[in-house]
Computed example of a mutant assay.
Amino acid sequence: MKKIKGIVLAMGVVLLLAACGNGKSNSSAAEGDLLKSLQDKGVVKVGFANEKPYAYEEDGELKGGAVAIATAVFENLGIEKVDGHLSDFSQLIPGLGAEKFDVITAGMAITPDRCENVAFGEPEMQYGEGLIVKSGNPKDLRSYKDIAANPDIKVAVMSGATEKDFMLREGISEKQIMMVPDIPASFAAVESRRADATTGTEMTIKMALESANKDKLEFVDNFEQPEIEGVPSYGAAAFRIADDELREAYNAELKKLKEDGKIAELIEPYGFTEELNVVDLDLTTESICNGDNY
């Protein structure tokens, strides 16, 4: 009797282990091909960072450079509707992993660390860094090194953004960095004198300043770009690592748009330019993840 119970118990353990697998969520694979499922439904759930000019809402409609590219690619894949959801930048990758989104995109920079957690599509656009200070630039800040040289200076930066790592590598200490949830909060920190400056991608903070209190804030036109790995940054859509077929199909349609010169047409209405923001055709995500292009 004990032997039979032991066999039953052992079989139960085997079945339990088989059901649990390796503990990683992969429901899209379990349900079948995600790409075909999205094409059948005609809808794809896309997470966008609420970051103008990449993605933002205006008159109830989602707009922005990242929105325009994603919409064009998915339309060419036979997926007519992009069900877009604006989110805090720091919540995009967790939301993708939790299957809240099928894909995320917002000019998200491809970095080696992020490449370990998500599978990036090929690069869609490039951009540099920017700095906003109090009107008149009383501290004469024109680079990250200027901030590092004065330990009393505080700089606000959006949580989850790559700028924190850039600043640390330029010698700015953790004590000088104030983490805030979004761009408006970073502006508020400078306006209230809790911070001396805020930084972010050049296009994002420059566009955001247009709707902020220009009398109190100033964009540093002659900001010196840091000469470090990761600058310029290259933005791309990101997928779950298991969703190879969806990513490859997305890349194939993206390549066509690049070769036809359509990317510039899609992003220029939002303030981007072909000269500054369109990536070279031969640049690959693999080279960026490996750090080969810096």
Rank of each mutant, 00 (worst) to 15 (best):
K216G: 10
A242F: 12
G42D: 10
M167V: 01
G200C: 03
V13Q: 02
D146M: 08
G107Q: 10
R169S: 02
G65W: 02
A237E: 02
L209Y: 07
A197V: 07
D260K: 15
E163A: 06
F101D: 08
R247C: 03
A10C: 15
V157R: 11
E122A: 13
S37V: 10
D292E: 09
K175Q: 12
F48Y: 14
R193V: 07
V118S: 01
I110T: 03
G78S: 03
Y294D: 04
K36I: 06
A185S: 15
D40A: 14
D146C: 06
M207V: 14
R193A: 14
C289R: 01
A72M: 00
E224R: 11
L92S: 06
A119D: 04
K81D: 02
N117H: 13
P138R: 10
D146A: 12
N117R: 11
V278A: 05
I177T: 12
T199Y: 05
E57D: 00
K145T: 12
S211H: 12
A29D: 04
A106C: 11
L34D: 07
A55L: 06
D282L: 01
Q39E: 12
P184G: 11
N290S: 15
M167K: 05
A18T: 09
V14L: 15
M203P: 00
D40R: 10
E75S: 13
V231F: 05
A185H: 03
K206T: 01
G64L: 09
A72K: 11
V155F: 09
T198M: 11
S37Y: 08
P123Y: 00
T71K: 11
K24I: 10
N22W: 04
L62S: 02
N137M: 06
A189V: 01
K206Y: 10
S287L: 00
E124N: 02
K81R: 08
L9G: 15
G47Y: 00
L34Y: 00
Q225E: 11
G6F: 02
G107D: 00
G230S: 09
E116V: 08
A238E: 01
G160M: 13
N22R: 00
L246I: 07
D59C: 00
N277K: 11
E75P: 03
E229V: 04
L35V: 10
K139A: 09
S211K: 06
I267M: 04
P151H: 08
A68L: 09
G121Q: 06
E116A: 13
A98Q: 12
R193Y: 08
K258C: 06
D215M: 03
D152E: 15
S192Y: 07
L86E: 11
K45I: 05
A148H: 11
D152C: 06
I263R: 13
N277T: 07
Y56L: 00
E116R: 08
V103L: 12
A189C: 05
P94V: 11
G97Q: 09
G97Y: 15
A55N: 03
L281P: 00
S233G: 15
K214S: 13
F219K: 13
E80V: 01
F74I: 03
A212E: 15
G291Y: 10
A119S: 12
A148R: 10
I205Q: 05
